[in-house]
Design a protein around this nucleic acid. Structure first.
Length: 496
DNA sequence: ATTAGTTGTCATCAA
DNA sequence: CATTGATGACAACTA
């Protein structure tokens, strides 16, 4: 209930104006516009009016963190704040419920938190904060402590959106294949059967092809391989039987695929048939490579391991060993490690198949030629259905192999990028946490000063009998029109 | 012997 | 409709 408090407002407050006497009302129920609400006989000191505005503006600060507390109560600085959550910023949300404070027409009632601390407070609150501490409380050495940090926080949205965007992309990209794969799994073991089986049954006897891994495959997709045009004039290839017997192992260590293959092809074909003339309309390209074309490829000169050669037919072993030995006396020997033994390079399954079917052009062309050129190439030869099917399988697998490599590369790059984004977000989170702590520290200082100011105001207020108002019994409230009332706390509680 | 990483392949979808 | 790239899943292999 409005106590219709009579009061004696201080006519002077040292050198500082304390309050607008004409706007201080002694009761909560006293309408602001009521004539009796105005102070009676109180002077209208502009400085005091300004001070009151600042005082009341500061009270808004108390709604940021501790809205349940009384507007006059001392707010201590609590250093142990809960961790900042990116999901919600309490200051911003609290502020959204704060009544715009009339502040000499400077208050923007539409101010909303947009990511910067300086925007959290209405303009008048900034003014009140600074002026309260600098005008009303010109205590030496306190300026720095009352400087609220207006630093503009880095907007969280762009990097977060970027991060989420990538996450979303990844998620979206991953949705389809999951469902697809379920369907694919239902297809059973047929998934891994070649499109062109070429006579291989579901459980065929273990041939060399089966014993070998696909991982040794080199599709010759790199242009580093010898030009097929040049090699088209090469010698006839070894039969698949020969290859199958001779390359029952893996040689994948310390040598690139192409290098290993080229080295093998060189040693096998060039040295095995160095003088054999071109004999046939469909010479298989795959085991044939001109040595002069391999020379620029350092991989060809890398050491080969001999440990995989045990059990190999002695002919090829000898060829390889001789090749290695001969390189030792040639210019190529310079690149051969002393301990290195030439690892037999396995032909890939497709290469062996192509070799077996005497595909007359290189895998490089099969895979890398544009479709028109590829079709044109096919028209140059009369291929059997098996050859045609194999060529198309080789092309499909070769392209898919490259695509898979690119896909994995991109995946790794995305992981690296997302890790970087995560680091940036964590740094930004830490930065925001520090800003928040700093803000809360400053807020506590301002609230403490507000408490002092309250106490000083109340110390100078007197009721009709000349008794001071108890700060425990009354609080100050300001109406939207700027009038300030003394409101009994019981009324405030009842109003809640 | 176990395990994580790598690679090739297949299936599937989308352009 | 064929081709091609992208990608998940799987298997084989390796260190």
């Amino acid at each position: 209930m409005c106590a219709a408090a009579n009061y004696v407002l201080p006519l002077r407050r040292h050198s500082e104006g304390l309050a607008n006497l004409g706007r201080l009302c002694g009761g909560v129920s006293m309408p602001a516009h009521a004539p009796e609400a105005r102070s009676r006989g109180a002077p209208h000191d502009p400085e005091m009016d300004l001070a009151w505005r600042e005082l009341m503006a500061i009270t808004e600060l108390q709604e940021f963190e501790v809205p349940h507390e009384g507007p006059y109560e001392t707010i201590l600085y609590h250093p142990t704040e809960p961790p900042l959550s990116l999901g919600g910023y309490s200051m911003a949300q609290s502020h959204s419920h704060t009544e715009p404070l009339p502040c000499g027409g400077e208050t923007n009632p539409d101010i909303a938190y947009e990511g910067t601390y300086s925007e959290v407070m209405p303009a008048c609150q900034h003014q009140a904060t600074s002026e309260l501490t600098e005008t009303l409380y010109r205590h030496p050495g306190t300026h720095s402590g009352t400087q609220l940090n207006p630093r503009v926080l880095n907007p969280l949205l762009p990097p977060l959106m970027s991060f989420l965007e990538h996450m979303s992309l990844t998620s979206v990209a991953g949705e389809g294949p999951v469902g697809k794969d379920n369907a694919g799994l239902s297809q059973g073991p047929s998934r891994h059967m070649l499109g062109t089986d070429h006579g291989q049954s579901k459980h065929p006897p273990r041939t060399v092809d089966d014993l070998e891994s696909d991982s040794g495959l080199s599709l010759g997709s790199s242009p580093s391989l010898a030009s097929p045009d040049d090699v088209m004039t090469g010698v006839p290839a070894c039969s698949s039987t020969e290859v199958g017997l001779n390359y029952n192992h893996r040689g994948t260590e310390s040598m690139g695929e192409q290098g290993r293959r080229a080295s093998l092809l060189y040693s096998m074909d060039y040295q095995q048939h160095p003088t054999q003339p071109y004999s046939g309309p469909h010479p298989s390209y795959f085991p044939v490579t001109q040595p002069s074309q391999m020379q620029p490829q350092p991989h060809f000169l890398l050491p080969m391991s001999i440990k995989h050669q045990q059990g190999l037919p002695s002919a090829l072993n000898d060829l390889n060993l001789n090749s290695s030995a001969s390189r030792g006396s040639s210019s190529q020997a310079f690149y051969v490690k002393p301990r290195g033994n030439p690892p037999p390079v396995p032909l890939s399954r497709d290469e062996r198949k192509a070799h077996a079917l005497k595909i007359p052009f290189p895998m490089e062309k099969i895979i890398n030629l544009p479709v028109d050129d590829f079709n044109e190439l096919l028209t140059k030869y009369t291929l059997t259905d098996a050859q045609l099917a194999l060529v198309r399988d080789i092309r499909r697998r070769g392209k898919n192999k490259v695509a898979a490599q690119n896909c994995r590369k991109r995946k790794l790059e995305n992981i690296v990028y997302l890790e970087g984004e995560l680091g940036q977000l964590q740094a930004q989170r830490d930065h925001l946490a520090r800003e928040r702590m700093e803000f809360q520290h400053n807020l506590a200082i301002v609230k403490n000063r507000l408490t002092d100011l309250y106490a000083e105001v109340f110390s100078q207020l007197r009721d009709e009998d000349g008794h001071p108002y108890s700060i425990d019994d009354y609080s100050l409230q300001q109406t939207p029109d700027g009038n300030v009332y003394l409101v009994p706390r019981s009324d405030v509680l009842d109003g809640e």
